[in-house]
Design a protein around this nucleic acid. Structure first.
Lengths: 208, 208
DNA sequence: CACAGCATCCCCTTTTGGGGGGATGCAGCA
DNA sequence: TGCTGCATCCCCCCAAAAGGGGATGCTGTG
């Protein structure tokens, strides 16, 4: 069956370019294109799309929110993100929202069609720097856990307990040492990690 | 400068195939090949490799452990994993250990050289199903963090600020609302997430 | 020995978390 | 229409927890 594609992109010129680029490929069918997330949310479900090509930077509701909501009504929809932004935050949020691939606009023309094909085949096409960022997410989570900063064994042990949700007193009991001692260790951890609160420390521990 | 490559692969036939495939490409130089992780750890540092092509399933020390240890002495070494296994666990552990790419053996011949080039350029080449698994890692962490509980937009926004290390007063100022209001939202967040502290909430937010 | 790093413990102030209440506006539904 | 639920906003009290800073002893090592 021919995959049904929608396009969500606010710049009219870019949108029309995308549509004609996609339409030129006989293997898929463009069933709709929208300039805003709100418009897409309203009209897309009736079109039963299989794929969506989505800009992130939309006026009003962002592309990321749009993905999340589209997925509510169209759980099998596969989304390819298209953006000029390469910052990690957007990448992770888009992937978490349910995107299946992430291309930067720079390499649209050469990769768009193959990327959609790849998605259909169960892949996850990404621009190379995006892919590297994703991989580095894993590097960081490991680095933070073991070798980024020189925490003493005791400090590491205590930080571990905090990440598990223990309060200082519980950690103290668990380790059989005094409450105040734990507190001092925690203060040292904060100094070494350059943070001022437990929340920040936990964040650093979990993802660098 | 010509990238210096090493190969770690226990099957002699496959190893020799790899070496000749790589050697046939004039843009890189194979400086060593090893049948075990132990052998590689002992001899690789003296060869100053830039890239490593690594099997995961090695006798003795696994390829994953090998990566981690090689990275200790050769922090700039980029590693391309080569394996027959596609299970998520190995993928994530390899990436955490510091691998930059992950290919399944099936598509070695067609992608190996381009994958190494991609790594050199800051990319993260992955077989499509591997990439999809990585992406699904993010889907899952989102599903756990939010599908299970429905935080309101405002609550999500505030939790986001807490994750960034703000204290309640800072978040209040940042949002231009009252301190007590923020506190109320935070309490609601805790109730919905079934946690009793900021640290726990942050952990749930970051990884479900 | 002096010194650095670690683990331990104590005092003081600020911030949180757990209870309450109460008010508004908005969407959906009988 | 009025009712109900939900999100948002604000306020109070109080006890517990967390953060800052200071201090002691113990172990290595130059």
């Amino acid at each position: 069956m021919t995959p049904r594609v929608i396009v969500v992109e606010d710049d009219r010129g870019v949108r029309e370019n995308l549509v004609s680029l996609l339409a030129a490929d006989g293997r898929l069918k463009v069933v709709g294109s929208f300039g805003t997330a709100e418009d897409a949310l309203k009209k897309a479900p009736a079109l039963h799309p299989d794929l969506a090509v989505m800009d992130i930077n939309l006026p009003g509701l962002s592309g990321i929110d749009c993905i999340a909501r589209l997925k509510d009504t169209l759980p099998h929809l596969q989304v390819l993100i298209l953006t000029v932004y390469e910052d990690g935050d957007n990448v992770f949020r888009a992937l978490k929202a349910g995107a299946s691939g992430y291309l930067v606009k720079r390499d649209i023309s050469e990769r768009l069609l193959s990327a959609l094909q790849e998605i259909r085949e169960g892949g996850a096409p990404m621009s190379c720097h995006i892919a590297r960022q994703v991989v580095q997410f894993f590097h960081r989570s490991e680095a933070a856990a073991t070798n980024s900063v020189a925490l003493s064994p005791r400090e590491r042990e205590i930080l571990d307990l905090l990440v598990k949700g223990m309060i200082l007193k519980e950690a103290a009991d668990h380790l059989g040492i005094g409450f105040e001692t734990v507190r001092t260790h925690v203060n040292h951890i904060y100094q070494k990690l350059h943070v001022r609160s437990r929340a920040e420390a936990v964040v650093k521990y979990l993802r660098g």
